[in-house]
Design a protein around this nucleic acid. Sequence first.
DNA 1: TAAATTAGTTATACTTTTGTAACCATTACA
DNA 2: TGTAATGGTTACAAAAGTATAACTAATTTA
Lengths: 147, 147
Amino acid sequence: MNQIVETIAENLISIHPLLYKSISRPIRSKASITPGGMFVLGSLKRHGSLSMTDIGKCLSMPKPHITLIVDRLIEAGFVVRQNDTKDRRIINISLTSKGLKDFEKIKQKSSEILKSKLILLDDQELETLATATQQVKEILISILSKV
Amino acid sequence: MNQIVETIAENLISIHPLLYKSISRPIRSKASITPGGMFVLGSLKRHGSLSMTDIGKCLSMPKPHITLIVDRLIEAGFVVRQNDTKDRRIINISLTSKGLKDFEKIKQKSSEILKSKLILLDDQELETLATATQQVKEILISILSKV
DNA sequence: TAAATTAGTTATACTTTTGTAACCATTACA
DNA sequence: TGTAATGGTTACAAAAGTATAACTAATTTA
């Protein structure tokens, strides 16, 4: 029981640097957005609209950092601030259509290295990887993506 | 064919921020080592011993950055520099026993958040995740972990 | 209504990461 | 042997991430 948790954690820790290398770094070199900005855009796409505090919880980042990232995203026209109608302290952040479109475009570009390696796999491996990544994604989202 | 590659890339891009949140950030707050340092230690553990240039290739990082990271790791007693006997330009970096031991300890600690969530899963999900992460890990290592 | 909480920003200081260019030592090669 | 290429460091600059405290505005609660 505990052993299997250890094994999973160990596997995920091995996967992490590979994704970092193939996703985060290409973002920095190819796009005019930081990994932090991409994380925020991803949270917004998943949850629709989030307050500053919720974004911080989503990414385990301190609020001042979120302020900075969102400032840059607004400057780029990717997101907008909207005052909450019920609680005027709250500022909700939402994707603009430009933000959504560019987010997808940047994801495409930043995963080029990844894809260039993936096409080297044979059909069986691709099949396996598609299923496996789907399962990992769904389960991780279910336990880690709480706002 | 191309579609399945897109799907896999999409899945991995969704997984990445979840791992970042659950692994990289806890490292910063709980351990006296940076994520960059952890990546280098991980590469060394996998490959045994690497030259500065190979570490850079391994992590897609510029060489001056590797110099900095390795300097800090040496200061902490985690790795050692060894001149190559055949080519005196090359400096090989290897883990010390302390480095190996502490690396495992930090991995344990940094994955605590992850594990605290994983134990909420039922046996069937754990089983699925163990298999799926293993498959993802092995295939990604085979295509992305070239030195 | 006064005090405590909460949401968000500002300010500040620091570390890490990134990128580039210049540099030295060694090796390969023409 | 002289030139080019390679491995690594140094130096410099700038961007990004991290952390904390202090602050304003709005809300809750006692």
